[in-house]
Amino acid sequence: MSVKQPIAADEFQYVSTLVRERSAIVLEVGKEYLVESRLTALARTLEYDSLSSLIRELRTKKCPQLVNHVIEAMTTNETLFFRDRHPFEALQEDIIPDLIKKRADSKKLTFWCAASSSGQEPYSVCIMLREHFPQLLNWDIQFICSDISELMLKRTREGIYSQLEINRGMPARLMVKYFLKEGATWQAKPELREMITTRQLNLAGQWATIPPCDIVFIRNVLIYFDTTVKREILGKIRRILKPGGTMLLGGSETTIHIDDEYERVRAAGSWVYRVAS
């Protein structure tokens, strides 16, 4: 396959409708470049002779495996370790110490990373917990990672990162402490991998498998949904947040004018969200 080709309007319409039906993610007009970029790379990987060939087969055969590949290609986003420093400071300085006091009797904490992608966010949180809260090693900690993509969940379980990926945001001191070099890649040590469990989950679908949570990370995810779906997701998170629980959104995301039953709380330089009392 040669160079990237522009996507035709009807092809873009077909892909955006498919992605919206399967994931509720909105690809508005103007996002053609994103579809071209992601699906041209997929077409190359799957050895189609062009982007149009891939989309033609998608439309005519509707092969579930190909549909899954397309949904995964369109919903997988760039991520890095310790992305946006401030939420991790909020966890370390405010949210976790507060929860340790509140849950001192049960000694049980449940975390949910709602769109864990290839695992950089959950592993960053697990490293932060081990570095700063060693007392939690004796607690019952459940750390659930979910994603719409089974491929991403497999990557999260394996915890294997290329050199380019481990370079992104991971302090060298923590890299040598929590990762093992395996050939050209770096793998999270078993003590980290054992902290997490994975569940495939479409945020716009049913959430039967998510238990009540103390902390929900849903950062830089809501931006991909329309207001109706955002409202549904925020409502469902409200119902699974334990009393005193906290939700963390991305820096450009908010509940304001979408779900006013949340209150915005300042935590070590970040805004976090709790169910209004």
Binding site: Q163, L164, R168, A172, R173, V176, K181
Partner: peptide, 24 residues
């Protein structure tokens, strides 16, 4: 791994492996 550890122990504050991106 040994190189990274040696550099940190010698006094490096951070370690970036080539090739890298501007973002990294």
């Amino acid at each position: 791994m040994d190189s990274v550890i040696a550099a940190l122990e010698a006094g490096a504050d951070e370690y970036l492996m080539k090739p890298f991106t501007t973002e990294a």
